[in-house]
């Protein structure tokens, strides 16, 4: 890889204690993530892909191992540092959009924009995701695809170096799903964010620079696509 390193996971593992049962959600795994690449993390339910995403996003701390973001040891960060890490470095896109119902599309984006010093302009971001006309609508009045675009706009308005997407097309129909993927691909070049898409939909792997395959709580395989497919050409 000739790109600079963005994040490094060293033997990261995570155990959950459910009463007396210990669940190994993630077994010791290592992964390097580079600036500007698009990674698709593939795996069936329970394979540990969401756990991996939560650890990368600073929503959770590993039970063991280290996570470096640049020189910052995210795995040793305290609550305040983790909050700041999420605030400055990470954008999230969720399967169910997670928009605030009481805020309009533009206000949902502004909610994130208000957190940092120099965000992108809200209207520019909505323009970017193709929702300028729907800025004043509440989530309940938007279609699923439109809500996901708002969610993406909310994530990228902070210009995060790392954009984490958890099943971003999971709740959408095929056509809409494709358009969302195209938008994410576009963002790697326009915003310059590293995009990580977690999905169980194997077809999406074709658009990735690299594909991380997970099975039973462990990274089973990491492969590179020499020529990633344009999202519009993906079919499932």
């Amino acid at each position: 890889m000739d790109k600079p390193l963005l994040m490094r996971l060293e033997n990261v593992s995570k155990q959950y204690h459910m009463g007396e049962v210990v669940v190994d959600a993630l077994q010791p795994s290592s992964l390097d993530i580079y600036v500007g690449e698009l990674i698709v993390v593939l795996g069936p339910s329970g394979s540990g892909k969401s756990t991996l995403l939560n650890l990368m996003g600073g929503m959770d701390r590993p039970s063991d191992g280290k996570i470096f973001f640049g020189k910052q040891d995210v795995s040793a960060a305290d609550e305040g540092e983790l909050t700041n890490f999420r605030r400055q470095q990470v954008g999230f896109v969720f399967q169910f959009y997670n928009l605030i119902p009481d805020l309009t599309a533009a206000e949902n984006v502004a909610l994130a924009a208000s957190l940092i010093k120099e965000p992108m302009s809200v209207s520019a971001v909505l323009e970017e995701v193709g929702l300028s006309a729907r800025a004043k609508h509440f989530p309940a009045h938007l279609s699923g695809g439109e809500q996901q675009r708002v969610s993406i706009a909310r994530a990228i308005v902070k210009r995060p170096p790392l954009l984490l997407c958890d099943e971003p097309t999971g709740a959408l129909d095929y056509q809409t799903g494709i358009s969302i993927l195209a938008l994410l691909r576009q963002i790697t070049s326009t915003v310059g964010s590293t995009v990580i898409i977690v999905t169980h939909n194997t077809a999406i792997a074709a658009m990735a620079d690299r594909v991380v395959r997970m099975r039973s709580g462990i990274i089973a395989e990491v492969t590179s696509n020499d020529i990633p497919l344009a999202p519009e050409r993906i079919e499932w």
Binding site: R86, Q88, A112
Partner: peptide
């Protein structure tokens, strides 16, 4: 609760 959790995820402090 969910909204507040989301805000924490987005980087809002306690």
């Amino acid at each position: 609760k969910n909204e507040l959790g989301l805000l924490r995820v987005l980087g809002y402090t306690n």
